[in-house]
Design a protein around this nucleic acid. Structure first.
Lengths: 246, 246
DNA sequence: CCTTATTGTCTATATTTAAGACAATAAATT
DNA sequence: AATTTATTGTCTTAAATATAGACAATAAGG
């Protein structure tokens, strides 16, 4: 029993239910998504995913999956949609993976129970997370060949419907940004107003008028104004701000 | 095998995954929810619920569950949230139910497999539906003692977290009402402006100014103005409208 | 024909959003 | 030390939208 404990089917997970996390970060005026690449032959990218233990809250499972790849415990995380097509199965992806990795995965093919468990149709719950990219060191899983940030406009082709999931997560992020006041989760502890504006411009992929944007954000009354930030540039130094309700 | 086919565990459902539907209707200036009462001793109300067949889209399962109780195939239906606490189990509810119905459910207790299947922890996907209450005849399930519309302000205490689910569904309805232009799904084919306003007032539980409300709705450009509606009342007859994109 | 209750729409006012303008300023340049 | 440059912070103005007030139109009833 103990030697098979790494098999999902033996771990006490809820069967046919998974969680996928779209982890958003922000850097260089671009929204990024954290995407691991599988440690197998072939080019396979997949969102950070996992299953739900039988004695675990679904939200807790999402937090755990997130912490596994980010090391962060306290992160903004929200459900955005369930993806539940009947045809939603790992089968074709796994067939390709096995064909390209006969040595590594031969055992898996022979383990009928395991193969049956993982190739069944899965209903997945999509979560999106907002993190401060700068204070995060992506952690490689035992399954990862690498794990990297990709600009949302330059994503690799991911397995299954994961690209569609990212698109839906972005839509949800846009809808919730002002309503739930969550943009500041993507920024460092302190930031200038220009940085907030550039973040908004990256998320909505459109410019905002500087004067009115500053007024709108300040009128939210959720920012504390700190000292000025002297960058050495030959112009007026901007103020730094901190988000109050973090 | 065929004699046990009515057991959920034998039906080819995805285990530990369920769907709950909050079916909204509107009548007498009040928002209503369609709630079946279980056909057992004891006062048990539960949202129209069901499971997902292994070869069935999750959305299709929700549509099926909805059609079972409403007879309607073409209804506005939308996911609103997954409820996935680890403690979310039918166990305590079923114990009560069995205690009150020893004759009917004795068999179920003895059917170990069945009992194990149904008392496990369930992750449920919440859907809300908007229907025209007037053209709907609620259909009783084999499990229902009755199925009735309850004003949302006068709901019975339902099993599990179903009351919380209704509250969350209402929040989502309010958020989506203007954005997704879905209010008209709750009204009959044709309606007066006053009826739209009263519907909004029921949903948001607050008054709207008549003059500005009419302008706001007409400015949406989704209503076709029809003939006047002569009610026999001693005053100006209102116009009837029809929603264009239904 | 007058009255009543309601409807449709107009006008006026307040508020919000968007656009334009400009002084303040941090450092580099003269 | 004065001048220049590239921003920043904020004010003013204009446009759009939301809210409130007003009133004529009208379908029956008396």
């Amino acid at each position: 029993m103990s030697q098979n404990l790494h098999y999902p089917s033996e771990q006490g997970y809820i069967a046919q239910l998974s969680i996928d996390c779209v982890i958003f970060g922000y850097r260089d005026r671009q929204l990024h998504v954290l995407v691991p690449k599988l440690n197998f032959n072939g080019e396979f990218w997949a969102l950070p995913s996992g299953f739900v233990y039988n004695d675990e809250d679904v939200d807790a499972a999402a937090t755990r999956i997130l912490q596994d790849r980010t090391g962060l415990a306290d992160v903004y995380l929200d459900q955005f949609r369930v993806f539940g097509k009947a045809a939603r199965t790992n089968l074709s992806f796994l067939e390709k993976l096995i064909a390209l990795n006969p040595d590594k995965l031969g055992e898996g093919i022979n383990n009928r129970k395991e193969y049956e468990w993982i190739t069944r149709r899965f209903v997945t719950i999509g979560y999106y997370a907002l993190v401060d990219m700068n204070k995060l060191v992506p952690k490689q899983n035992e399954l990862d060949q690498s794990i990297d940030w990709y600009p949302i406009k330059d994503l690799p082709v991911l397995i299954l419907d994961h690209n569609e999931m990212i698109a839906t997560a972005l839509e949800t992020l846009r809808e919730n940004l002002d309503r739930k006041l969550i943009a500041f989760n993507l920024l460092p502890e302190t930031f200038t107003m220009k940085e907030v504006q550039e973040l908004y411009e990256a998320i909505f992929d459109r410019p905002f008028a500087r004067n009115n944007f500053q007024k709108k954000i300040l009128d939210l009354n959720v920012l504390e104004r700190l000292d000025k930030k002297f960058t050495g540039a030959a112009n007026k130094a901007p103020y730094l701000y901190r988000f109050l309700n973090r």
